[in-house]
Every structure is written in structure tokens, then in C-alpha cells.
Amino acid sequence: MNNLAFETPWALMGLILLLVPIFRSNMRATTYPWLDILPNDPLSELLNLLIRLLSMAALAALFLGLSGIYLKEQHVERIGRGAHIVMLLDRSNSMDNSFAGKAPSGNDISKADAARQLLTEFVDHRPHDLIGIAEYSTSPLFVMPLTENKQAIHAAIDATSIPALAYTNISKGLSMALSFFEHQPVSGSRIILLVSDGAAVIDPDSEAALRVLFKQQQVRLYWLFLRTDNSPGIFAEPEDQRDDNAQAMPELYLHRFFSSLKIPYHAYEAENPDAMQKAIADIDRLEKLPLHYRQAIPKQDLSAAFYGWASFFMLLLVGVKMCEARTA
């Protein structure tokens, strides 16, 4: 019964009219000189009762139909292959440049465009995933909660076609992405897919907080690093001892930080759209753990059925009416 709901519940007040067939008769009255003279007629009494009940049933069905009764959206638990994925997208200015580090011209596409196309495909490939989107530049932006609504995810990915914002503040972005998993059941794998073209220094306070959060939320981290030509990559070891610090090589230091988290972590360095494609395909292949997911069964309108019943009862009454005896 908890699954039933009404579009216009006030129409249920009409159910009070069910009293009408009890107090009023729907049969032709025949004048009779003296009622006491009539013999007891149990069959007629029974028929009378049945006709009244039938009328009440017709009325009840009609009012339930009018109240717009429906079965609420239900969820059935199923097991599929998929994951809970939070995409954390870099919206810093440099994402609008091509992999060559210039403003895109001719056949070049910007890193943001390449990322957008690939992520769109990725989302279409993964039917059972719950996907959420967070973005960051100087501040984190909450974009889309974890959801199975693919249209909403596409709408959010499409919106990254507009110009990017400001600088790169990765620690705030990461904590926002991690916050998506709060109050979510642990099922299948939990993934943060970080798509960025640069890194930034994480201050010690945030670093400690992030360590705790990553452990608590049991997250697997994929870093898709879009490397611009001639920039140091995530795996580049410094040539000069003096460059071996987080300010000079933030990518390397961020990579070291992620590696030290003791969580499943994989970094991909992509220098062109093809390499990105490979990385995405890799993630697609790897993240196929069994996942409990809830499939929604959309709400079902029951009013049509009740209107049908009302018609059926009325039809019966018409039939009864046809059989009505005519008294002289």
C-alpha cells in the first residue's frame, strides 16, 4: 500500500458519496397499498443488496480513477558490471589550448574538446554506472550529483565547451569529488577520474585531510594527465637537483602524493587525443566489477484500470436493469 499515491488526492473525498446507495434506492418505486401484506422474499432482498454493492463498487472505482491513483516509481536491485564514477574535470584556462600549448587552429582541437568527446563516448559505453561530475579551477564547482540519468550527464559534459575559468586548485577539487561518495552505499568500485592538464601544489593541511578521505571512501583514482608538448610529465625525474621540489615540478609531486596514498591508483599521460582514447578504453576494461545497482521501474498509472472497473460495474448494472421485472 505504501507504493500507492494519488495525483489529486482531494478527489478521494468523493468516496463519502458511497453512502448514497445505502440510503437511497436506485430502483423504481411501486406504490403498494399495504406493505405488511408483502410476503418475505429473501431472494429479492439479496438481489437488492447485490445491486447496491455493485453501485457502490462502481462509484468507488470512479473516484479512485478521478483521484489519479498510481503506483510509485519502484526500484529493483540488479547486479551488473559497473562503477560509481566521479569525473573531476580541470577547468583552468590552459585546457582551452591544444596539446601543442597553443590556441587551437585548423585541425587542432583543444584539450578540453578532446576530453569532452572522449568522456561523452565513455558515458555512453557504461550503461550501469552512476556518474557524477565536479569541476575545479581556483575553486571547486559542484556540477552533477552521482546519477544514472545519462541525459543530465551529457548536459553537464556538453557545458564544458564554454571557455574555461581561472587557475588550478586541485586539492579543493579532490575534496569535493570525494564528498560525492558520502552517504552512498559502497557497491562495485568507487572511482575518481581526474582529467587535468596540470597540477598544483597541495598544502600540508589539505594533504593530510585528503589522505584520510581517500582511505575512508575506498576510492580508486585514475589520473588522465593531458600533457602539453615540452612540459614536464608526471613521470619525468628532475635533471637538476634544484628543481626537485613541488613548486618546480607539481605534476611529479602530485603523482608521488597519489602513489603514496596506498589506494589503487593509475596515471595515464596522454600527449594527443589517441593516447587519451587508449587510456579511457583501459579504464573501461578494468572497471567492470560486479555492481549492485537499482533499476528504476517508472511509475504506473492505475487510474485507467479503475475506470475500466467502473465501466465494468456499470455494464453489469445495465445488464441487471435489462432483467428488471415490470410490476403491473
Partner: peptide
């Protein structure tokens, strides 16, 4: 900045 393009309100209400 646009966080997401318009989505249908009945399907996308929770989001």
C-alpha cells in the same frame, strides 16, 4: 559559467 545545459525537469528533477 554554465554548469550544465538545460535538462528536462520531470526526468532530471532529483539531479
Amino acid at each position: 559559467t554554465i554548469l550544465f545545459e538545460p535538462i528536462e525537469v520531470c526526468n532530471g528533477y532529483p539531479e
